[in-house]
Nucleic acid binder design. Structure first.
Length: 419
RNA sequence: GCCAAUGUGGCGGAGUGGUUACGCGGCUGAUUGCAGAUCAGCUCAAUCCCGGUUCGAUUCCGGGCGUUGGCUCCA
């Protein structure tokens, strides 16, 4: 399989550090609010990546962190007059529920920042010992002047203002916090530098180092994390022992936009996953997301979703008779997936598999994409269908139509064959 | 200002140095208790602009313009 890496800006064959094993780390959300369609996109993409790699026979350790200590959480908890842990746990639960609904189930392990404080403190201590970090009265900062590789990922030379904290105690405005001393309510811990809490970037490297070591295969996340977050991760991790690159394949998903603007919590233009699910079912959402390549921008519009719903319906309507394997169609599918996870092309292959009636492939590939391409026929439903057909055969159309009307109202589409 | 992504038909959205997927929509016919769906066929139609390389560029190179984003928390 070939993958595009932001680090080299090219598509390269995936060569993992250990044959047949893939270590995949994806930045999870900060749990201070409901997740929106932008999150749905990113996590659907990596869900499909992990499923596909596993399908090809690789053992995938898919690690995702949950940022549950952060300014946003502190502020939000204060606003809502609840404790930080209560707020974080609540939105973590909601996040996981949304993921479950969307069929996102490939993550091997979710790691909370707050349950890895000893690892974080340990990593900060080692960075200080390496003389790449220094202690001030406000906390511990990373000394960016010691790291030559900064800017390699984002293309920004000598990246400026990595930290949002303007703190006179810093040697350089670019330096970012590893540990912030102070009292921050429930989420404050003792450390060699005084009570406080971790900086944003250090949690990811502490967690990934614990489970993967200092080098691993794929690091994913949204495009918005390249700078400064991922740059900072590289600086931290590669400063420990100088292993370079910390990660060879940096995968970044394109933005989901609404009316031409990026969907984000700060802009307030976001559509939450649960709201979207009121109108569209999870299969349609996944189909819509995979209809465009993961690095392209994707417009969230009702027309686009409706288009996706119709397209998926079409596949299900066509895929009826089992005509056996369609080797060209199968090869087209895997070729597309191998080509930097080209899901739009893979879905084109699905169309031809449906048209030719390769039911087995549709079932198998549907499991990779997390989409059911076959019409569901539960036992009660098929009984209902049988009864309707019997009624139609007896020309009792009034009752048959009533049943159809009710079923459609309940969201179950019906296709009658000619009598 | 610096950095990055992106710019394809009525719409969504791929690939490609020469014949441009796939879907949605549109049209015609078949089929049909009706609706829908399906089947056959059709139409339709696009590669931001200007240069360069080339027999030939939408594709490669250079420049420009537009859009979105990053430089502040963000998937």
């Amino acid at each position: 399989m070939d993958l595009y890496s932001t680090l080299t800006r090219t598509v390269e064959p995936l060569v993992t550090l250990h044959p047949d094993k893939v270590y995949l780390f994806v930045c999870g959300p900060t749990v201070y609010d409901y997740s929106h369609l932008g999150h749905a996109r990113t996590y659907t993409v990596f869900d499909v990546l992990a499923r596909y790699l596993r399908w090809t026979g690789k053992e995938v350790f898919y690690l995702q962190n949950i940022t549950d200590v952060d300014d946003k959480i502190i502020n939000r908890a204060k606003e809502e007059n609840v404790s930080q842990p209560a707020l974080a746990r609540k939105f973590e639960r909601e996040y996981l529920r949304d993921m479950h609904t969307l069929g996102i189930n490939a993550v091997s392990y979710y790691a909370r920042a707050t349950t890895h404080i000893p690892e974080i403190i340990d990593q900060v201590e080692r960075l200080i010992a390496k003389n790449v970090a220094y202690v001030t009265e406000n906390g511990v900062y990373f000394d960016l002047d010691t790291f030559d590789g900064n800017g390699e990922l984002s293309g920004q030379e000598r990246a400026k203002r990595v930290s949002r904290v303007t703190d006179a105690s810093k040697h350089n405005p670019n330096d970012f916090a590893l540990w912030k001393t102070g009292e921050y309510g429930e989420y404050t811990w003792d450390s060699p530098w005084g009570r406080g809490r971790p900086g944003w970037h250090i949690e990811d490297t502490a967690i990934s180092e614990k489970y993967f070591g200092q080098q691993y295969d794929i690091h994913g996340g949204g495009l918005d994390l390249i700078f400064p977050h991922h740059e900072a991760e590289i600086a931290q991790m590669e400063s420990l022992e100088g292993r370079h690159p910390m990660v060879k394949y940096w995968m970044h998903t394109g933005f989901l936009t609404v009316k031409g603007e990026k969907m984000s919590k700060s802009l307030g233009n976001f559509i939450t996953i649960r709201d979207a699910l009121k109108t569209w079912n999870p299969d349609v959402l996944r189909y819509f997301i995979l209809l465009s390549h993961y690095r392209s921008p994707l417009q969230a519009t009702d027309e686009g979703l409706a288009n996706a719903a119709k397209g998926l319906d079409h596949i299900r309507a066509v895929a009826k008779k089992d005509n056996g394997a369609n080797p060209e169609g199968r090869k087209a599918f895997t070729d597309a997936m191998d080509a930097d996870l080209n899901t739009p092309m893979a879905l084109a292959a699905i169309q031809s598999l449906a048209a030719s009636g390769d039911i087995e492939a549709l079932r198998e590939y549907g499991a990779i994409l997390g989409i059911n391409f076959l019409r569901e026929t539960s036992a009660p439903l098929s009984v209902l269908h049988e009864i309707r057909n019997e009624l139609r055969a007896r020309k009792q159309f009034e009752v048959a139509d009533l049943i159809r009307e009710r079923m459609v109202a309940a969201g179950i589409s019906i296709t009658d064959a000619p009598l």
